[in-house]
Design a protein around this nucleic acid. Structure first.
Length: 491
DNA sequence: TTTAGGG
DNA sequence: CCCTAAA
C-alpha cells in the first residue's frame, strides 16, 4: 500500500498537533484546540479510529492540509460556543450523541444489532446531522475529499450520503475512539478531557456527568472486546481479519489497521447501533410536538410512533440508572423535548420503562393543572390522553402522583408564606412554583378536593370539607363527583 | 384497566 | 416513582 508514506505522515501530524497546542494562546480556542488534538492524536499514533478520522491518510495524499481541517474544527467549536448551532440544539446534539454512545456500547452485544448496523448507523448520522450551511460554507473546499474518503472507507451508506456527516462524525467518533482504543490510556484521557471541557462549557457544572460517563465507559470497555469476538465469530467469511483485529486491540500499531478498517469489519463493530429506545421515543415526541429540532430525514422516520406507544407501558423491573440530568425547568415551550436526558438502558430484551425520575417541567405542570381544571381530578387517563398524548412517558398514574405532590407543595407553599413570611428565606426552595400557579392549584384543590387532601395528613388550609361540589367556575365539574371519594371511606 | 393510596 | 389493592 502506501505505507511508505506513513512515517512522513506521522511526523507531519505530530508537528501539526504540537503547533496547534502551542498555538492555543487564545483562551477561546482552547476547546477547539482540543478538538484538533483529538483528531490528530489517533492519526499520529496510527490507531485506526474511524472513517472520518482516518481520512487524513488519503486526504493528505490529496494535499489536503490538516490545517484546514483544524480550522473546520475551530470554526465548529466556535459556532457551538457562540450558540450558533441551533442554540440549544448544539447541546442536544452533544448529549444525544453522548447518550447514544453509551447505549451503543451497551447494546452492542446484541449480535443482531451488528447487522442492523449500517441502517441504524445511517439514521444515527442523520440524527446528529449538522446544519447544512456549515458543511457547505466551511468545509466546502474539502467537500470532495471528504466525500471520497467517506465513500471509500465506509461501508455504511449513510456516511457517504451527506456531506455534513463528516462533521457529525466528528462528534460520534468520540465513541469510536473509546471503543477501539481500550488500551490507549492517553487517548482515553484526552477524550474524557475533551468531553469534560465541552460539557463544562455548555452546562457550567457538569463535571460529575462526564465523570460518570467516563466511568461507565471504562466499565464497559471490557465488554467491547468480547463484543468484537462475538462479531468475529459471526463473520466467518472474514477469517483473516480476526488476527488483525486482535492485533489492533493488543497493540497500538498501525499500518494494517487502516486496511482492516477499510475491510469494514472493524467499522461494523464500532458503529454497532440500532436505534435506541431513547432515539425512538424522542423522535416520536418531536414529531408529535411539532417542534423538531433536527430534521429527521431518515428513511424509517415513522416507525417510532407505534413503537413508543408499545413500550411505554410500565411493568418492568427496574434496572437502569438515570444518567444525565439536565433540566431546564423554566422554559415553557421548549421543556417538553428538552427534559430528555435521563435514560435507562441495559435491558437484554423487552423494553424498560426507563422512567426513573423524569423531572416535571413547568410546562408540564401547567398542562396538568389545565387538564385537571378541565376534566376534574381523577380523570387521569383522560387528561393523559388529551393533554399528554405527546409525551409517551407520564402515565396517568404519574399525573396523579404529580398532582398529589402539587397539592402538597402548594399547601406547603401557603404555610410557608404564612409562617415564614417574615423569615429571611425558606431554606432552599427547590423548585419554586410560580405563585399564580400555586394559587391555581389551590383553587383547583378546593374545587376538586382530592380525596387525600382531606385526610388528616394534610388538613389542607382552611376549607375543604363538605362541599366537594364544584362551585361553578371553569369548564367541567362534569364527571360524576361520586367517583372521586368513592373509596376513601372503605379503608 | 383505571384509580386510590401507601411506601 | 413504584407497587398493590380495590373497583
Amino acid at each position: 500500500m502506501k505505507t511508505e508514506r506513513k512515517p512522513h505522515l506521522i511526523k507531519k501530524h505530530t508537528d501539526m498537533k504540537c503547533q496547534r497546542v502551542e498555538g492555543s494562546v487564545v483562551p477561546g480556542l482552547e476547546e477547539a484546540t482540543q478538538v484538533g488534538h483529538l483528531l490528530a492524536e489517533p492519526k499520529s499514533e496510527h490507531v485506526s479510529v474511524d472513517r472520518v478520522l482516518c481520512f487524513g491518510k488519503e486526504n493528505l495524499e490529496k494535499h489536503l492540509k490538516m490545517e484546514d481541517f483544524f480550522s473546520c474544527a475551530l470554526d465548529y467549536s466556535w459556532r457551538i460556543n457562540c450558540g450558533g448551532l441551533h442554540g440549544q440544539g448544539g447541546d442536544d446534539l452533544k448529549l444525544e450523541v453522548l447518550d447514544g454512545l453509551l447505549d451503543e456500547v451497551d447494546e452492542a452485544d446484541d449480535i443482531q444489532a451488528a447487522h442492523d448496523l449500517s441502517g441504524a448507523c445511517e439514521d444515527f448520522q442523520l440524527d446528529i446531522e449538522f446544519p447544512e450551511k456549515y458543511s457547505e460554507s466551511d468545509c466546502a473546499p474539502h467537500e470532495e475529499s471528504n466525500l471520497h474518503n467517506l465513500t471509500s472507507q465506509s461501508h455504511a451508506p449513510g456516511f457517504s450520503g451527506t456531506r455534513s456527516s463528516a462533521v457529525g462524525t466528528l462528534e460520534s467518533s468520540i465513541a469510536t475512539i473509546r471503543e477501539s482504543n481500550s488500551k490507549n490510556g492517553v487517548l482515553e484521557k484526552m477524550v474524557g478531557c475533551d468531553l469534560h471541557h465541552t460539557f463544562k462549557r455548555k452546562f457550567g457544572c457538569q463535571a460529575p456527568v462526564t465523570n460518570t460517563i467516563r466511568s461507565i465507559i471504562e466499565h464497559k470497555q471490557n465488554t467491547t472486546r468480547s463484543i468484537i469476538e462475538h462479531k468475529q465469530s459471526f463473520d466467518e467469511s472474514d477469517d483473516d481479519e480476526k488476527p488483525l483485529v486482535s492485533f489492533i486491540f493488543s497493540t497500538k500499531s498501525v499500518k494494517s489497521t487502516v486496511e482492516v478498517t477499510k475491510g469494514g469489519s472493524l467499522l461494523r463493530q464500532k458503529r454497532l447501533r440500532k436505534p435506541t429506545n431513547r432515539y425512538i421515543e424522542e423522535f416520536s415526541r418531536n414529531s408529535t410536538t411539532g417542534k423538531n429540532k433536527r430534521l429527521k430525514v431518515g428513511s424509517q422516520g415513522e416507525l417510532p410512533q407505534v413503537a413508543s406507544e408499545l413500550q411505554r407501558r410500565r411493568g418492568h423491573p427496574k434496572k437502569i440508572v438515570p444518567k444525565l440530568e439536565l433540566e431546564s425547568d423554566c422554559e415553557l415551550s421548549a421543556s417538553e423535548s428538552e427534559d430528555e436526558h435521563k435514560r435507562s438502558k441495559r435491558s437484554k430484551m423487552a423494553c424498560d420503562r426507563r422512567k426513573h425520575q423524569r423531572m416535571w417541567t413547568l410546562a408540564e405542570v401547567i398542562k396538568l393543572v389545565d387538564g385537571i381544571a378541565q376534566y376534574g381530578v381523577g380523570r387521569w387517563t383522560d387528561i393523559k390522553r388529551l393533554l399528554f398524548a405527546s409525551s409517551a412517558y407520564r402515565t396517568p398514574v404519574d399525573l396523579r402522583d404529580k398532582w398529589r405532590n402539587l397539592l402538597r407543595s402548594s399547601s406547603a407553599h401557603k404555610h410557608n408564606r404564612r409562617e415564614l413570611q417574615c423569615e429571611t428565606k425558606p431554606k432552599h426552595v427547590v423548585r419554586p412554583l410560580p405563585m399564580p400557579l400555586v394559587c391555581r392549584i389551590h383553587e383547583l384543590a378546593t374545587i376538586h378536593p382530592y380525596p387525600m387532601a382531606r385526610s388528616p395528613k394534610k388538613p389542607s388550609d382552611r376549607y375543604v370539607p363538605s362541599s366537594k361540589q364544584p362551585r361553578t367556575t371553569e369548564a367541567a365539574p362534569s364527571h360524576s363527583p361520586g367517583r372521586k371519594l368513592r373509596r376513601k371511606k372503605c379503608r
